[in-house]
């Protein structure tokens, strides 16, 4: 049910765009930009994952592996074989899409948590392959990735660029790129949510049986969304690899998959802005907690646990609820 002004499509996108434009005034150095860029790329991944978790009610425990396949194909095909980054990125997305389809289609015919188990298995197999095939992937020590180039123009984080008479750092341009990618990701996701498919999906999250009774092929829709969310992960994985310049198998690990899911749930399932907030919080937390040294792990677990106990709907929806209560708003018009 989209009955809140806060969740209306244009409003959310506008808020996000505004934040992305205003944010640089608060960023004091390249380190801050660095974290912001990574947040943008991960947030776009998580927006895709949210389609699956928030709207199709399915859990993927292997999304980091899709992210990793995108990242590693970009690293290997551009680095070792000298392909051009953008075609590689698209090629990787197609490969990941096919993997997701082959796994998702039969599994999603079944009800229950089977997709989570299947993705766990696929994720681990991908991780093990990346970790073991040292000659191709560099093994556990990782592999370096060339910088991104678009139509022959290289975008290196460490270079400066003259654009329209201004000197812009590569980091700043990456910030712009990450911002644009995130807006694009959100825009596409919201279009999917508002499409007939999306409406069918929301019905699925409500009641699968009901959806089937009214003639919605839930399995097909769910596998479609699963493929889309996997493709999101792959594309962002490719960008992430080019941005950081060095990747290790950890980005494809089960732990990373768990982090991605946690971002969705912590921020607020089914709320696109919410999951982005989830990314921001989980990306900042290690930096904030870094000063606590030995206590870091304990505090991280405690914060995660308490947030979910007291805000079971996630950060943003809970805050929105509080805000609404506080403002004593009259009920919004339903959809």
């Amino acid at each position: 049910m989209l009955n809140s002004l806060f969740q209306s499509r244009q409003f959310g996108l506008l808020v996000l765009a505004l934040i992305i434009i205003v944010l640089p005034f608060g960023l004091q150095n390249d380190f801050h930009y660095d974290i912001a860029i990574q947040m943008g790329l991960i947030a776009a991944t998580v927006v895709g994952l949210n389609l699956l978790v928030g709207f199709a009610g399915q859990i993927s425990l292997g999304h980091a592996a899709f992210f990793g396949v995108g990242a590693y194909m970009s690293a290997i095909l551009t680095g070792t074989y000298g392909w051009s980054p953008i075609p590689v990125l698209l090629f990787a997305a197609v490969v990941v899409g096919i993997i997701a389809f082959v796994v998702g289609r039969p599994i999603l015919r079944l009800k229950g948590h089977y997709l989570s188990m299947a993705t766990l298995a696929v994720g681990f197999i991908i991780y093990i392959i990346i970790n073991n095939e040292r000659r191709i992937t560099g093994g556990p020590d990782g592999i370096s990735v060339p910088s991104l180039s678009i139509f022959g123009a290289e975008l290196n984080v460490f270079n400066d660029y003259q654009i329209l008479g201004m000197t812009l750092s590569g980091t700043f341009l990456w910030y712009v790129l990450a911002g644009v990618l995130l807006l694009l990701a959100v825009w596409i996701a919201q279009n999917i949510i508002d499409s007939p498919i999306g409406r069918a999906l929301r019905s699925v999250h409500g009641s699968e049986v009901a959806a089937r009774v009214v003639g919605v092929d839930t399995a097909r829709f769910k596998s479609l969304v699963f493929v889309i969310s996997a493709v999101y992960a792959s594309i962002m994985g490719s960008f992430y690899a080019h941005y950081t310049g060095f990747i290790t198998p950890q980005i494809a690990s089960f732990e990373h998959s768990i982090v991605l899911i946690t971002m969705v749930v912590l921020g607020g399932m089914a709320s696109t802005l919410g999951v982005i907030l989830g990314v921001v919080v989980l990306k900042l937390l290690p930096q904030v907690l870094a000063d606590f040294q030995e206590l870091e792990m304990m505090m991280f677990g405690l914060i995660l646990m308490l947030t979910m106990i007291f805000m079971p709907k996630g950060l943003l929806p809970t805050l929105q609820g509080l805000a609404r209560k506080y403002l004593r708003k009259k009920p919004e018009e339903g959809v």
Partner: peptide, 20 residues
């Protein structure tokens, strides 16, 4: 799903305490 995330938080917390 939220409950599952709570157990993940709990496991990290327990591990953190055990490490201390």
């Amino acid at each position: 799903v939220t409950l599952i995330i709570i157990t993940i938080g709990a496991s990290i917390f327990i591990r953190g305490v055990a490490q201390l």
